[in-house]
Amino acid sequence: MRKVVIGLFAILAGTSFAMAADTGCDAFKWPVEREQALFPEAPAAQSGATLTVGEAVDLTLAAVDTVPFQVPPQRAPAAGTFGATANVTVPPEGDLQLSLSDEAWVDVVQDGKTVKSAAFSGVKTCPGIRKSVRFKLAGGAAIIQVSGAKKADLKLAVLTPE
């Protein structure tokens, strides 16, 4: 009887450890290890900055009602929240992955129009990374619009999908 109880405990403990791993960063639909490596050393950037694909920044946000968005955000930001814009050159392949450290809405504007995201993954239990959004874009200039953030700064990684 004792061996059965010990064996059952080992099975249950193993299951709970596996479930715990799935509730953190592993719960994203795709890997976020690059963001985890980039965010701690992300240099400061202001709204309107030009960002480089493959890097992350610690973006200073402004009161959302003072940010000159090229087009209105797809989700209307609540009063008292923060936002920013940034420029980026999309690689010729056109795939872009934007990851944020905190809750906020992110749009990408190209040719004066908001581009619908191709995929989204959000996890509340991953320390330092809240969401990651993928876009299929044309190569060339684009504007990243962040809005609805509850804090005046957040980290933003601009990557190509793995």
Score class of each variant (00 low, 15 high):
70 Q>D: 14
108 V>M: 03
101 S>L: 09
45 A>C: 06
48 G>F: 08
37 A>C: 01
24 G>N: 10
80 G>P: 05
152 A>Y: 04
9 F>A: 15
119 A>L: 03
28 F>E: 00
65 D>W: 01
56 A>C: 13
120 F>C: 08
19 M>A: 15
23 T>V: 13
150 K>A: 15
109 V>R: 03
113 K>Y: 05
125 T>A: 13
8 L>N: 06
79 A>G: 11
61 L>D: 05
23 T>K: 10
139 G>Y: 00
46 Q>T: 13
76 A>T: 14
12 L>S: 14
124 K>T: 14
102 D>P: 00
100 L>I: 10
121 S>Q: 01
36 Q>W: 00
8 L>T: 12
134 R>Q: 13
52 T>G: 03
140 G>T: 03
34 R>S: 13
9 F>W: 05
19 M>R: 09
56 A>M: 01
34 R>E: 15
48 G>Q: 07
86 A>T: 07
22 D>Q: 14
88 V>M: 04
29 K>C: 04
1 M>F: 08
4 V>C: 06
61 L>I: 06
77 P>K: 05
157 A>Y: 01
137 L>Q: 04
107 D>W: 08
19 M>I: 12
35 E>M: 09
153 D>K: 11
44 A>K: 13
60 T>L: 08
46 Q>L: 11
107 D>V: 06
138 A>L: 10
75 R>T: 15
12 L>H: 07
52 T>E: 13
8 L>G: 15
132 S>P: 07
96 L>Q: 05
98 L>H: 01
56 A>F: 05
60 T>P: 02
93 E>Q: 14
129 I>N: 03
83 G>Y: 02
122 G>C: 06
155 K>R: 15
9 F>E: 00
125 T>Y: 09
99 S>E: 07
6 I>D: 02
5 V>N: 07
147 S>R: 01
14 G>A: 11
96 L>M: 04
7 G>W: 01
